[in-house]
Design a protein around this nucleic acid. Sequence first.
DNA 1: CGTAGACTTGACGGCACTCAAACAAGGTGG
DNA 2: CCACCTTGTTTGAGTGCCGTCAAGTCTACG
Lengths: 241, 241
Amino acid sequence: MSSYLIRRLTLRDSTLSPASLQALTQGLSAPVSIPAGTVIVEQGSRPGLCTLVVSGWAARLSALPDGRRSTVALHISGDFVDLHSYPIKVMDHSVISLSACAVATIDHPTIRRITETDAHLTRVLWLQTLVDASIHRQWLLSAARRSALEHTAHLICELFTRLRVVSLATPGKPFQLPLSQQQLADALGISSEHLNRMLAELRSRRLFEWRGVEAQVLDLEALQALAQFDATYLVMQDEPR
Amino acid sequence: MSSYLIRRLTLRDSTLSPASLQALTQGLSAPVSIPAGTVIVEQGSRPGLCTLVVSGWAARLSALPDGRRSTVALHISGDFVDLHSYPIKVMDHSVISLSACAVATIDHPTIRRITETDAHLTRVLWLQTLVDASIHRQWLLSAARRSALEHTAHLICELFTRLRVVSLATPGKPFQLPLSQQQLADALGISSEHLNRMLAELRSRRLFEWRGVEAQVLDLEALQALAQFDATYLVMQDEPR
DNA sequence: CGTAGACTTGACGGCACTCAAACAAGGTGG
DNA sequence: CCACCTTGTTTGAGTGCCGTCAAGTCTACG
């Protein structure tokens, strides 16, 4: 049920003991199905639990008082969407499902117990939130310095790499990308019309294709070169503590 | 010596025990003075310690393979610039001093000892890294949805608020902003020429003035309204664990 | 007093936004 | 079964914010 999470955690930190993994998975509720567009956490709220995406896609949305808003993170199977709500308490953004999802929750008292008894697992949870931060920084770099085409290519490379980690994508094969162009454009901070033009350009260069929910990277090397993609920031290596 | 840090930590979490505070401050090295422009940590490196800004300003710079780069965070007295290097290991960005600085360090083994013996202090350190992430998200929102003028006003509000937390700024009084326009523009992801025009606009509206290193917010309410600034994301309230 | 660096101002161009309409696809009810 | 509606995608035209280039001004400092 939380196999994607386990795949991520064991890939990232092979030293995580079975006991720690069990402590985490036993703290998780049974998965609940929610339709696309469901608000999982509200900006300004004080959640009493953290949510794990078991399957499907979710996004974090930051809103201005006047209503303008932007996607500040995308999440896939195996991602905690609001693990930071345990230390931070007040949500600075909302979380919504972008596709139909299954989500499981773990409440703050359980996490607190983990932090008091399992230093290693605590560090792994901390690490998960830091990977989110690392992705934020890469998005900031993209927004400031990459052209819209490069930015688009970069996000595709990032998502493809993250999907590979949890075996939801394989080089040379199509993968599921159940978003609208509007949603992807929002994550890039560009208009959907402009994204559409960028996608047409990537298609004409035979780098990337996307019809409906099925997407395919046609030339991974060239796409990564265009995006100047370096996967280091996604932290996928095993690291001794 | 690390009084700004203590001011931040005790403001943020009044439940932090004197023993925990002492454990942290005793783990810190004596402050070292470094000139402006010093590379504190290199992108791609694996630091064995974390750096605290005791005084002065520092920045995190993310670079693309082709040399283009952007500032992804600004740091002031009392900020850890690379606390995340303990869980993440490989730096995804560089850190450099923007002004003359005093910095202190704490090595990873000491932090590890803290995580194994002091769950509460660990949570506070985790929180510090999450506030950085929260700021990243606000910068993403600014980059995507605020105009250059609003974006500029917002960063000024943010820095002013963060300086107030460590008593380096007071409403109605000038404060030290020892950066060049180029450096501030880089943090905003806009050109220095355009920032210059935005600063002229803020000056003409009698919202903000900045000559040399001395800056002053002339009308805090109006500046915050223009920026749509909401300080929640900076997490300054005391919170019970 | 001269030089270097930072700041200021102007002109021009382009990337990406906005507005608008056409097209495609899927669902619904008459 | 097919109008009809809704939602998403595609394409076009016009605009504007902001970047780039360039020149000029100010300030600090040797």
